[in-house]
């Protein structure tokens, strides 16, 4: 086979695979603009003949979609901010500050990565219940405010900070807090971007973030508090047959994270390559 033919074949394969991968997402968008009922025909229509935003209007007007979007946005942002704060402090400490028990703690944290998050879920729920935090955003966010993954992500990166840099600052009389704010944080900026995206989206730790489902499903019982995925699942039990409406709901849930990913994908991908453990 000539190089030219190989090249053509390769691109045909890649284009078809990419098209197949994107097809469900594109179809989701197309159906979301179809008038109610028009997508339930055979053969399935690929594009809306009379595009309408009625499904979206209905979701906002009668299903409180605006509220769920605000809930999700608020929870995911809060998770990202808290996780930045706590994980960067601990990650730096584990990389560059000597303290008693450091190595033993590191080993324990590393070993705990094999524990599936679901194991913690039920006692966590009981704990939140006794603390009176069920149905509060504090209860949803607090367990995601620091994570083993986050600590290790920052630690791996902080290891590369030269000790001389920190020593020089100490000799100049700077205390550790000032060193952290003035020297460490600026150096850590790229990995903090990774951590922020990963925490916002979720999926890197056992709970938290925009995409999380099981924990908010358990921890939030008042419908007005629901996050988008939980609200969408509830909606699908009521309106499962209204395909056009459901697709509009799916678009509203997926579109923000896709846009965020496209804007910041190199940070997100770095998170994967730093040996993250998902799930």
């Amino acid at each position: 086979m000539s190089a030219r033919a190989t090249r053509v074949l390769l691109h045909v394969a890649l284009l078809s695979l990419a098209a197949l991968t994107l097809l469900p997402l594109l179809w989701m968008v197309a159906v979301s603009f179809m008038p109610a009922g028009t997508a339930s025909v055979f053969p399935p229509p690929l594009l809306p003949r009379h595009p309408t935003a009625a499904n979206y209007r209905l979701l906002f007007a009668t299903q409180g979609m605006g509220r769920y979007i605000a809930n999700s946005l608020w929870l995911a942002s809060l998770t990202a901010v808290l996780s930045l704060l706590f994980n960067s402090l601990a990650g730096f400490a584990f990389a560059k500050l000597r303290f008693r028990g450091r190595e033993a703690l590191l080993r324990t944290l590393l070993a705990a990565l094999v524990i599936p998050g679901q194991v913690a879920m039920l006692p966590l729920f009981l704990m939140m219940k006794w603390l009176g935090l069920v149905n509060t955003y504090t209860g949803v966010v607090l367990p995601a405010a620091a994570s083993i993954f986050g600590v290790f992500l920052v630690r791996q990166y902080a290891l590369s900070i030269p000790d001389e840099l920190l020593e020089a600052a100490r000799i100049d009389g700077a205390d550790e807090v000032r060193i952290f704010l003035r020297i460490v944080l600026p150096v850590l900026r790229p990995i903090l971007a990774t951590l922020a995206v990963a925490s916002f989206l979720g999926g890197f730790t056992f709970l938290g973030g925009w995409n999380d489902f099981l924990w908010p499903l358990i921890a939030l019982t008042d419908q007005r508090m629901y996050t988008l995925p939980v609200a969408l699942a509830a909606l699908s039990r009521e309106h499962g047959q209204d395909n056009e409406l459901m697709m509009a709901g799916a678009v509203l849930t997926v579109l923000p994270v896709l846009v965020l990913f496209l804007a910041l994908q190199r940070y997100y991908i770095r998170g994967i390559l730093t040996g993250s453990v998902k799930g």
Partner: peptide
């Protein structure tokens, strides 16, 4: 410096301990 190490690591360790390790042990007890 060693105090700072603990100080910096403590908030994350408390959160991970209280909201992950404790529930895992709790699951075993439960």
């Amino acid at each position: 410096a060693s105090h700072f190490g603990w100080l910096f690591a403590a908030p994350a360790l408390v959160i991970i301990g209280v909201f992950f390790f404790l529930p895992v042990l709790g699951a075993l007890a439960l």
